[in-house]
Design a protein around this nucleic acid. Sequence first.
DNA 1: AGATTCGGCGT
DNA 2: ACGCCGAATCT
Length: 265
Amino acid sequence: MEKRKSDCPALPPGWKKEEVIRKSGLSAGKSDVYYYSPTGKKFRSKPQLSRHLGNSVDLACFDFRTGKMMPGKLQKNKQRLRHDQASMAKGGKPDLNTTLPIRQTASIFKQPVTKVTSHPGNKVKTDLQRATEQPRQLFWERRLKGLRSSDVSEEVLRTMDLPNGLQSIGLHSSDETLLSAIASALHMSSAPITGQTSVAAEKNPAIWLNTSQPLCKAFTVTDEHIREQELKVQQARRSLEEALMANSLAQAAESKTELSEGKAA
DNA sequence: AGATTCGGCGT
DNA sequence: ACGCCGAATCT
């Protein structure tokens, strides 16, 4: 049987797609779709593919069977992602989609690198449940300096206030980059964030820096901090609950009026 | 052992 | 009806 592996333009270069028809059994005539990474590893489901690619590719609108991106198919909901203040003003409802947006452009986060060895014959273990640790530039956080997030109208969003206990290391002092550094640390690893625990790092961070921790002095989290944070989370959840409730009520009301309008017509 | 193939559970 | 993945079967 001829194996047709075709290129898959919706995926990064080098990925191949294959469809094999089942030729016997109860499911004869049905087909299975497989993908092959540039290194030749076989993938047989979207979750598996998604796990391997991580955040580097957004598979939300990727159709595994056809291998194509299908815009306007975000989950099972028909969801207009057009969401500017124009459509808002015309009575459009706010976007209550709670799935996190994924950056499509080059990201500082979790970018895989090509591993080159001088021993081509050796077997290299790939993807031991995600590439573990990638090389990083020392003080790379400095490149985040001055970056601000903004909303769709390019209004710069207010930044967060950090607790007083947090002090930076290796960024010139009282730098707003500290927030980015800590946020990045939280984003990139599930390991606890402790800050730089070595006192020597304060004197000469270029030498004593613990690169798996953000450029931040060691800090202490008190029970009081935790209680404050719990309170904030509870309040945020209540707000979200109220908003979702109000939205579903509004939708129910709307579909009722649509129904009666339909009868009148 | 690794690849291939179909069954069958869960949605 | 179909996606996903376990496991039987094949090489």
